[in-house]
């Protein structure tokens, strides 16, 4: 029993990490998005429809969900990417709420084995049973989640060392100066929004198949704000930052029984205090830079 509980908590940490990484990528390019939950939702519904209603295999459903989320991100990015700061944030918020409200009225059902399957407005979307039908155990599914998370994380780490990663950071610091290094800031920002959409989409598709049931109100703005807060707690200097944020919130606070009823009170206060001391999180750029320096010295000393 406890094992199942543990597997579920650990799986949840894995899934929420995707949306945290997604919000983090936009923080790196200097934009706050309150709306990454929209891409999570689009993919959750899209992949659920693909596997439960069209009978697609799981892997194809996941891929389809992630691509759909990327496409949705492209649609938002093109008109909003030239908005700066606050305006962009509110636009993402408006978009995400629009998506949620559309799923509140979106109904698309077909009859499978004498039962109606598919999204039914605010009643949600039941019986996304692909992983149970193909006899994947909860533990195996957890491994799938972490396998994909590892792939995405390695992608982020490669990105951070690449020129593209540097371009994202440049835009985050000074878009005008970056334009004057001969780079088309708009194009790179659209690219960042789409990449972030795909990453959130992977998480959404995984979520729908673990929970087997999704409803619009799961994808409210609180999910997006949590995703954002994780990056800001953990730090914007490295992709490990948002994962540390997730671990602190779910791993640490969830496990301390004494504060279970007051988790949001403690978490909210903690984040607010942290933002005063370290506005760019625990592992901010300076901290990461310092750690890299120590690491280099260490390697030199051992060689």
């Amino acid at each position: 029993m406890d094992d199942i509980y543990l597997v579920t908590v650990v799986s949840n940490i894995g899934m929420i990490s995707f949306i945290a990484l997604s919000a983090y990528l936009l923080l790196v390019v200097g934009e706050i998005s309150f709306g990454q939950q929209a891409f999570f939702a689009v993919s959750a519904y899209g992949s659920g429809i693909a596997t439960a209603m069209w009978g697609w295999p799981i892997w194809l459903g996941l891929l389809w969900g992630a691509l759909l989320a990327g496409a949705a991100a492209l649609v938002v990015a093109i008109p909003t990417v030239r908005l700066r700061g606050l305006y962009f944030s509110v636009a993402t918020l408006a978009f995400a709420e629009m998506v949620r409200l559309i799923f509140e009225i979106f109904t698309y059902q077909v009859e499978i084995d004498g039962e109606l399957v598919g999204p039914d407005g605010s009643d949600g979307f039941r019986d996304i049973r692909a992983i149970y039908d193909s006899n994947v155990s909860a533990f195996e599914y957890m491994l799938i989640i972490y396998g994909l998370l590892a792939v995405v994380l390695i992608g982020f780490l490669i990105l951070e060392r690449s020129r593209l990663g540097a371009i994202f950071r440049m835009i985050g610091e000074d878009p005008m100066l970056t334009e004057m290094q001969g780079l088309n800031v708009t194009v790179y920002k659209i690219l960042a929004v789409v990449m972030a959409g795909v990453v959130a989409g992977i998480g959404g598709a995984l979520y729908a198949h673990l929970a087997t049931y999704v409803e619009p109100k799961i994808f409210n703005v609180m999910l997006g704000v949590h995703a954002l807060a994780y990056g800001l707690i953990g730090g914007l200097g490295t992709a490990f930052g948002p994962l540390i944020g997730v671990a602190i919130d779910i791993g640490l606070l969830e496990s301390i029984r004494a504060i279970s009823g007051y988790r949001m009170i403690v978490f909210g206060g903690l984040v607010a205090l942290l933002l005063i001391v370290r506005p760019r999180g625990l592992l901010d750029e300076a901290a990461v830079h310092w750690l890299r320096g120590r690491w280099r010295e260490l390697r030199r000393a051992t060689h």
């Binding site: 704000v225 954002l228 909210g268 506005p279």
Partner: peptide, 22 residues
């Protein structure tokens, strides 16, 4: 929160929102 960190203020006010609600 120091001047210039408008984004930190916005996020901070958002987490305090959740705190107040709870």
């Amino acid at each position: 929160i120091r001047r210039g960190a408008a984004v930190a203020s916005m996020v901070s006010s958002f987490v305090i929102w959740m705190q107040l609600e709870e």
